[in-house]
């Protein structure tokens, strides 16, 4: 076989799966040799190879499908998630970079602060970019389907009430960012419970809680926060209320509330020094905490009522709107 043909084939099969290479090379070799005829001149060979097109293109025809890191079917959802993750990670690292700077004892120059914050945020952003991309590339490689399967017209009928039952994107995003920051604060709290303390000039900081006792309770709090965070992500993804989503959302709100009240009324978790720090006495503190819990309950109930009202009112409205049409 002519040297040029051999090189051409070698270049082509390089792009193919190893299991296919030998067979394709053999077959392509005989076919091209047939095409150039007996005792071909260099010019004829060049002409034929030009007609065959570039080895990469030929190889892609042999593969039969284009190769993508992230294919067109997945790209939209990939880009959506990338933006969301960038926003959440950006805000969360920014907040934490600021907090850690406030906590650091020595005060660095403004330029140092700025470059340190920028560095932290940028490295967190690029790390999240890498991980989201790798995750999606793997999903794509193993052909995991991201679309909802079995779409039918029922889905369109169900969308009738869409404009009135929308969940605002902005609200969901604010929830997600806020909850992520809160989640990291909890992790921070878990690792250094003594930092949640009363700081007064001239006194040693007085931790509010007893570190060892509070930790298991914090894990529970993280779990309820994760639930709420998951619901927020679902809200952002769905973009509209459904009865099921409303149910889960209310469930999460109530769970969070009940857990919070349960936690703050475990009196054995408080640092006795904290109770006695202000000359109020234990009972005053208990009253304040109970009052706070009641206030929080009222706020949560208002928020739940608002959600329920949004969903139910709109449903009733669409039913009455339907009547004149028929």
């Amino acid at each position: 076989m002519h040297e040029l043909i051999a090189r051409y084939i070698e270049e082509t099969i390089r792009h193919l799966k190893p299991s296919e290479r030998e067979e394709v090379a053999k077959e392509l070799g005989t076919n091209i040799t047939d095409m150039v005829g007996e005792n071909p001149s260099e010019a004829v060979i060049e002409q034929i190879l030009l007609e065959m097109g570039s080895p990469a293109e030929l190889a892609s025809k042999y593969r039969g499908k284009e190769r993508y890191l992230i294919g067109p079917a997945t790209f939209d959802i990939y880009f959506k998630i990338l933006k969301l993750v960038a926003l959440v990670v950006g805000v969360v690292t920014l907040v934490f970079a600021l907090i850690s700077l406030f906590l650091s004892s020595n005060a660095p120059a403004f330029g140092t602060i700025l470059s340190r914050i920028l560095g932290t945020v940028l490295s967190a952003l690029s790390a999240s970019f890498v991980w989201v991309t790798i995750t999606f590339a793997l999903l794509d490689y193993y052909q995991v389907k991201m679309d909802d399967e079995g779409w039918d017209v029922k889905a369109l009928h169900a969308l009738e009430a869409l404009p009135t039952k929308t969940i605002k994107r902005g609200e969901s995003i604010v929830d997600i960012v806020g909850l992520s920051v809160f989640m990291l604060l909890l992790v921070f709290f878990y690792s250094m419970p003594q930092l949640v303390a009363i700081y007064l000039k001239g006194f040693d900081p007085v931790p509010i809680f007893l570190g060892e006792q509070i930790r298991p309770y914090l894990i529970g709090w993280m779990i309820t926060t994760l639930f709420t965070l998951t619901i927020s992500v679902i809200k952002l993804h769905q973009g509209r209320w459904s009865n099921l989503l409303l149910g889960f959302s209310i469930g999460c709100d109530l769970l969070g509330l009940i857990y919070f009240i349960f936690l703050v009324t475990r009196w054995q978790l408080y640092n006795p020094e904290f109770f006695s720090f202000f000359n109020n006495g234990v009972n005053t503190w208990k009253t304040i905490i109970k009052a706070g819990s009641v206030a929080l309950t009222i706020l949560t109930l208002i928020s739940i009522t608002d959600d329920v009202y949004t969903v139910l009112k709109k449903t009733v409205q669409t039913e009455s709107e339907k009547a004149p049409v028929q």
């Binding site: 077959e27 076919n31 095409m35 007609e51 065959m52 293109e57 030929l58 025809k61 042999y62 039969g64």
Partner: peptide, 12 residues
């Protein structure tokens, strides 16, 4: 039909 279309097509 181009050779570079036919040969891969046969394999497919």
């Amino acid at each position: 039909i181009e050779a570079n279309t036919l040969y891969p097509m046969l394999r497919r």
